[in-house]
Amino acid sequence: MALIQIRNLARRYVMGSDTVHALRGVSLDIEKGEYVAIMGPSGSGKSTLMNLLGCLDSPSAGSYDLNGKDVARMSDNDLAEIRNREIGFVFQSFNLLPRSDALHNVELPLIYSGMSRTDRRLRAREALVQVGLADRLHHRPNELSGGQRQRVAVARALVNHPSIVLADEPTGNLDSRTGQEILNLFEHLSSQGNTIIVVTHEEDVAQHSHRILRIRDGLIAADESTGRRSSSVTVPSPHPPVLPPQGP
């Protein structure tokens, strides 16, 4: 069974008498170890989908099975634990704590996973070094450039070694060199068997992935392989896809 299996997933936002259909019934399987890019015009529902995949939001209709378990039936505590241990989320708007420095921001997931103070300090520092911010540990978000904030957000998403990385425009504010470094990081994680899902507007960023999902108006318009990895492409179907098991 696929790691991520969604069926007819819909998300509506009711605003007074208006209803916005952000997602209109998406079905999708993503295998463990896949590297997926999601593309689509602004407002097409990419972030909405990411929030659902990241267990931050609940759908208006449809089902979402993660690792074979129905997310709708999980308790708040289970979901918190999944967000903490299984998922690394890079938000489109970073979502850093404004009053805390970079190090503490990166430490947060480790605090909630109960790691000791010294261990998590070490880990958080390591993660920041990895994204090239060794000399910005004690800067607060408002003392960092947009690109640096983005890198703090990436470091925070990766610090708990999540098996699923959900990144909403992780390279949007980065110059091509730093952007490339982040992409290399993702590629490395992918090669180690982690599942990566990246939202992007840039075609060449998407080309790093194995598979590109094109979303338009809350629906999947296209699902194509980039050829970088053999046959990891699946077509949504009511039956579990018949695929060779995905290894690291």
Partner: peptide, 10 residues
């Protein structure tokens, strides 16, 4: 919201 997204429980 940030704390909950990163795994803080109720």
């Amino acid at each position: 919201g940030i704390r909950k997204a990163l795994g803080a429980k109720k």
